[in-house]
Computed example of a mutant assay.
Amino acid sequence: MRFSILLRTTLAFFALLAATAWAQAPLKIGVTPGPLADSAEVAAREARKQGLEVQIVEFSDWITPNTALAAKDLDANYFQHHAFLDNAVRERGYKFRSIGVGLQGSLGLYSARYKRIEDIPTGARLAIANDPANQTRALGFLRDIGLITLNVRTPRAITPDDIATNPKKLKLVEIPGPQLVRSFEDVDVEVSPPSSFVTAGRKDVAHAALRYSLDDDSYWAIQFVAREDNAADPRLAKYIAIYQASEAVRTQLHASYGSNTHFYRLAWMKQKPQP
């Protein structure tokens, strides 16, 4: 009997010790460089003032943030829209889910050689992201601006095979999303987020798109993503609430997006941001 009581006491002590250590460990949020990292760090500074220790971890690709989250090296990440998340879960079997909505960036049609869509010649090489989710969005954008037509109506899983007509006979070049900026001069035209050019120090290019696209479908908004086993962590809820309520975060986002409201919207506010 005494041994049983001692065992329960010991187990309770170590459980309390583990819980205390867990509570004191910094919340780790994975992001990609640019507006996401900049705004997440602003929110982290505000969280620290409120007693919540947050560490922002930057990744230079779109694969590692999910790998690190699955390995429990992160508590959450903030870099992917719902389409990208759905595809990652489907392909990798991740036990992830969205726990909050963030900003939504626009797409731009860019060219170092042509100033108008009408000037794009027949057979031009057009670069788009090679991952299924961003490829879907890019193809939907190209349809919306009249460069192609598609066989599908619902823009949730579009591939080049779904192109019905391509009047200019554009030759699609599939490139990893983070590399699109570097490939800008190597193709005739490309679909890329303006924020990528801002982050690369090329604001002049970011502001010179042939056309911008910014719909209000939050399926394309960046999500705060956690694992199913920690999605209810109150620290994550607190951090997201700080991020969404912070005027300093909004100011940083506006600056990070080149002070151009064509480049983004605050999806959690259900409206376009104001200058």
Rank of each mutant, 00 (worst) to 15 (best):
G177R: 13
L180P: 00
S196Q: 08
V152M: 09
V181L: 07
F184H: 07
A200N: 12
V181F: 09
S192R: 00
D144P: 01
E190C: 01
P176L: 03
K203L: 14
N151P: 00
P167I: 11
V189Y: 01
G201I: 05
K169F: 05
F184P: 01
N151G: 12
V187K: 01
P178E: 10
A164V: 01
T149R: 08
D204K: 09
P160N: 08
V189H: 04
R143W: 06
F184N: 03
K168T: 03
L180C: 06
G146H: 04
Q179R: 13
S192I: 13
V189A: 10
T154V: 15
D188Y: 04
L180N: 02
G140Y: 14
A157I: 00
S183K: 11
T154D: 15
P193Y: 02
V191T: 05
R182Y: 10
L150A: 04
I145H: 07
V189N: 02
L147W: 04
V181R: 12
K171E: 14
F197V: 02
T199R: 11
L139R: 02
V181W: 02
R143K: 14
G177V: 09
P178L: 09
R143I: 03
R182T: 11
L180K: 03
V173M: 12
L170E: 07
F184M: 07
G146D: 03
K169L: 11
L150Y: 06
K203A: 13
D162Y: 12
I158T: 12
I145P: 01
A200Q: 07
P178D: 13
K171D: 05
A164M: 07
V205D: 06
L170T: 06
T165P: 00
T154L: 08
K171G: 00
K171I: 13
R143D: 15
D186Y: 07
F184D: 01
S192Y: 00
V191S: 02
D144I: 03
L172D: 04
S195R: 09
V187N: 05
P160V: 05
T159A: 14
Q179G: 00
D144Q: 10
K171A: 10
E174I: 02
E185Q: 14
V181A: 15
N151L: 14
H207Y: 13
V187D: 08
D186S: 14
L147E: 06
F141N: 06
R153W: 02
L147R: 09
